[in-house]
């Protein structure tokens, strides 16, 4: 099958509402959105604390987190696999090859991105923003909220970045999810599988969806940022 024929077949699959294909898309979005919902408050909260608190070992912790930005997802998958497998520390929970395991893996992959980017967003805020909030009598929690709202676009960039990384990662999802059809098969693992089987139409169709989702998130971010600067 030539590339043109495959693309044509892919578009037909997308438009015909192919159940298998849209189940895969559903798994991807569901896992990634759940992972982001968990990772966002934790990551941004840690970023804020790292930016504002001074404690021994802070510098080293920041270096470690920035190092984790480059951690291969397949290594995260391997570690999580060892922890969740039957002999592992969390083997009793029977989480291996479930969507929950994929969510945990994606949270671990998203966290360093969210922490490192929100840390630099908050450190980059105008120091007068905090001083003004404090001088006007705001409590610690209100100062924190005010500061996060002031740097909201930099935080949105952090979220887009983390989303882009987890929605497209394959190593961890493949290892702890197991690529089970209808359960843990998401877009990246399905593309790898279909392509290895020679079924390019399904792979291209899923690739189009993944591109649209990833670009869509970034375009809407750029749009909101543009609106706010008009």
């Amino acid at each position: 099958m030539g590339l043109l024929d495959a693309t044509h077949a892919a578009l037909r699959l997308l438009l015909s509402g192919d159940a298998e294909l849209w189940t895969i898309v559903g798994v991807s979005l569901s896992v990634t959105l759940r992972a982001m919902l968990v990772a966002m408050p934790v990551g941004i909260g840690c970023g804020y604390l790292l930016a504002t608190l001074r404690f021994p070992g802070r510098r080293a912790l920041i270096v470690v987190i920035q190092g984790l930005l480059a951690s291969p997802t397949v290594v995260v998958g391997l570690l999580l696999y060892l922890l969740l497998s039957r002999q592992g520390v969390f083997g009793q929970l029977h989480l291996l090859f479930t969507q929950t395991a994929m969510v945990i893996g994606q949270v671990l992959i998203a966290l360093p991105v969210l922490i490192a980017f929100s840390l630099s967003a908050i450190q980059g805020a105008d120091p007068r923003a905090r001083e003004t909030a404090v001088a006007l009598g705001a409590s610690g929690a209100r100062v924190a909220w005010t500061l996060l709202v002031e740097v909201r676009f930099a935080l949105m960039a952090a979220v887009c970045n983390a989303f882009g990384r987890v929605v497209s990662e394959i190593g961890c999802s493949l290892m702890v999810g197991g690529n089970i059809a209808g359960v843990t098969r998401n877009i990246p693992t399905a593309i790898a599988l279909e392509t290895s089987k020679g079924d390019f139409a399904q792979g291209i169709a899923l690739g189009i969806v993944l591109l649209v989702v990833a670009l869509g998130v970034n375009f809407s971010f750029a749009f909101f940022q543009g609106e706010s600067r008009r």
């Binding site: 105008d126 007068r128 923003a129 001083e131 003004t132 404090v134 001088a135 006007l136 009598g137 005010t146 709202v149 002031e150």
Partner: peptide, 17 residues
């Protein structure tokens, strides 16, 4: 005391609201 004393910067910062 913060409720009694207010400081205003030379170039005041206004929140993006």
């Amino acid at each position: 005391l913060r409720r009694e004393v207010i400081y205003v910067h030379q170039q005041p910062y206004l929140f993006h609201t």
